[in-house]
Structures are given as C-alpha cells and as structure tokens.
Amino acid sequence: MKGMTVIVKTVTRWVKVFIFLYGIYIIITGHLAPGGGFAGGVIIACSYILLMLAYGREFALKQLSSRAAHRLDSSAALLFLVVALLGLGYGGIFFGNFLQARYPGAAFKLLSSGTIPISNIAIGIKVAASLFLIFIILSVLRIVPGEDGTNKMVQDEEEE
C-alpha cells in the first residue's frame, strides 16, 4: 500500500499549501510578531512530513530529495555564518547588525531591523531541512532484536 486512503490524500492536497505558507509567514514576520526561524522551520518540515505520511516515501522524496535537503541544510548554515562574518567585516563585531546601523528601517515594517530577517530565513531553511532529514532517517531504519539479546538497526522496506 502506497500512502494512505483517498480521503487523507485529498485533504492533504488542500492543506499542505496552507501549512507551508503559514511556516513562511512565521519565518518572515519573526522580527515583528511571535514566532521566528525555528518555529517556522518546524512548521515547514511538518508540511513535508504530512506529504510523506499521506503519499508514501517515494512521492515526498521526489518533491524534496534527501540530497537536496542536505544541500539546503548546509547552505543555510553557511548563510547564517556569512551574515555573522559580514557583521564582523562591516561593523567590526561578530554578528553585528551592520544593516541596521547603516540603513535603519522604520520600526514595525516588514523591511526593518537589518540582518535579523536574513538570519531568521537562514535558520528556518536549516531547521526545515534538518527535521525532514531526521524523519527520513527514522522512517528508513528499524530496530530488530538479534538472537544474542542485542538490538541491531536494519533498513525498513517500503510497504507495497
């Protein structure tokens, strides 16, 4: 059996977009409203995990392969570090908010507070890709008791 029933698949098709959009909203308004990169990233990962639970592993991996999730994870971590190093280069302080010091935006606007939204986006992408990878790993491996009392991990086979 690939995935779940038709009801679950249809509901997932409608709901997944809204979960994804809500995650993006939580990330990009992290400096104005409660939320931020970590919470938004977890919600985006939830949308992909919903896809995987409803449609099966193959379909979800076609949308976001584990290799792509890997690259997103690493490049978002690098982006966060680059923001910190730019703060060191331009402002003289590691993680200095050099954009806010040079171009102070109006408070309570979306484009304000310098490097904080960029860091939020980086953390959001990183957390989403990481949690998706963790779910792939956990759903692939399975713990089986061996004969001599020790447990070993074997690969879980896709149900058909």
């Binding site: 992290g30 400096h31 104005l32 409203a33 931020g36 806010q100 507070s113 310098g114 904080i116």
Partner: peptide, 9 residues
C-alpha cells in the same frame, strides 16, 4: 535593533 519582537532581537 529595529525589531519589534524583543525576543527575536
């Protein structure tokens, strides 16, 4: 910092 959400700041 210019961030309205002090937690994020």
């Amino acid at each position: 910092t210019g961030a309205a959400n002090i937690v994020t700041a």
